[in-house]
Amino acid sequence: MESVPKISIVVPVYNASDYIDLLMESLLSQDVVNMEIIAVNDGSTDDSLSILKKWSCFDSRITVLNISNGGPSRARNIGMNYARGEWLYFVDADDWVAPETLKCWIYLAEKNNVDFLLGNAFSFENEPTGEHRNIFIKQPWGRCISGEDWIIHAVAQAEWPHYCWLQFIRRDFLIHHDITYPEDILHEDILWTMNLSLAAKCIYFDVTPRYGYRCNQQSIMNVSTPTAIAKRINGYIFLIDRIVQIGTEKRGDLRKAILLQANRECGHLLGLFRKRLHDKELKSFLAHVALRKVPFKLLLYEARSFKEVWRIMRMWLLLKKYL
C-alpha cells in the first residue's frame, strides 16, 4: 500500500527555466523523505516543462501537472486539489528553501499543534549565499496566537507578511474551512492570508529566515506595461472592496484593523495611479471602476487619524480628476 506523504509542496511554474534547478536542488536536499512535490506548469512557453519532466524522472516524489495558462492562483488550487500530504507548503519557482527547513517546521508545527506556521525570509538576487537579513522583524516570534489576534498585531505594526511561501499549513484545516485561492486577480496573497488568518485558532511564528526570496525583475509586479499596471490596479480595487466587506462583518479591534488595512491598500492604489499608469484612456476607465467599487464614504467614516482621512480624500480627488 502506497504511503501518504507527510508534506505536499506545490510549485506553480511559469517560464522559470532559469531557476527551476536551484529550487529543486534545495527541495530535494531537505531531510524529509516522506514528501511529494507537485509542480504545476502553468502554460510555460520556455523550457520549464521539459526541465520539470527531467526532475520527475530523477525523483519519483516529483509529479508534474501541465495545464493551460491561468495564473498562479489557479495553478496553486489545482496543485492543492492534487495534494495528499498532512501538511501543505507553497513555493515559488524562482526561489530557494534553506536546508532542514521542512524538518524544523514539522517539529515546531506539531509541537505547538498549529493550524499553520509562519516562517521568515531573506531576499537575494543571484545566489542565496552569504549573510541573510530577515525581511520581517515585527512578528510575535516564538509564540502561538490566534489568527484574529495576528491580524490586529500585524496591522498595528504595519507589517503583515501575507506571502503563501511563508505559510506551512495543516491541509485538513484548509479542507475543513474550504479555503482556496481567489483566481483571476493580482494581490491574491493578501485575501488568501486574511481568510486563512480569520479561520486559524493557533499560528506559530518562526523567526529564522529559511526562505530565499529572489528579487526577480521579470515578475508581474515589476513589469511596467500599461496592461500590467492596469491589472494590478484592478487587483487592488477588488481587494479593497472585499477587505471592507470582511471588515464590516467584524467587531471591535478586529474590525478596526481590517478596515485600516483596506485604507492602506488605497495608498498602494493611489501610488499606481499617480506614478505608474500614464495611459489617459486607461486612467479614465479605471477611475470610473474604482469610484464605483471602492467604498470611499465608509473608509472615510472609519478613518481614525488625519493621515488615514487624507489618504482616502487624495485617492477620491485623484480619481475624480481623471473622469
Score class of each variant (00 low, 15 high):
V40W: 00
V40R: 00
D42V: 04
G43F: 02
G43T: 04
S44V: 02
T45G: 12
D46F: 05
D46V: 08
D46G: 04
D47E: 14
D47I: 00
D47K: 13
S48E: 03
L49Q: 08
S50G: 04
K54Q: 12
W55R: 01
C57D: 15
C57K: 15
F58Q: 13
D59N: 14
D59K: 04
D59V: 04
D59G: 06
S60P: 00
S60W: 00
I62N: 08
T63M: 09
T63R: 12
L65P: 04
L65A: 03
N66Y: 02
N66C: 08
N66Q: 10
I67W: 05
S68M: 09
P72V: 09
P72N: 07
S73E: 13
R74G: 00
R74I: 12
A75P: 04
R76K: 11
R76L: 04
R76M: 03
N77R: 03
N77P: 02
I78C: 05
I78D: 07
G79R: 10
M80Q: 12
N81I: 04
A83E: 07
R84Q: 14
R84E: 14
R84I: 02
R84Y: 08
G85C: 10
E86A: 15
W87N: 11
W87A: 12
W87I: 15
L88D: 07
L88R: 10
Y89Q: 13
V91K: 06
V91Q: 15
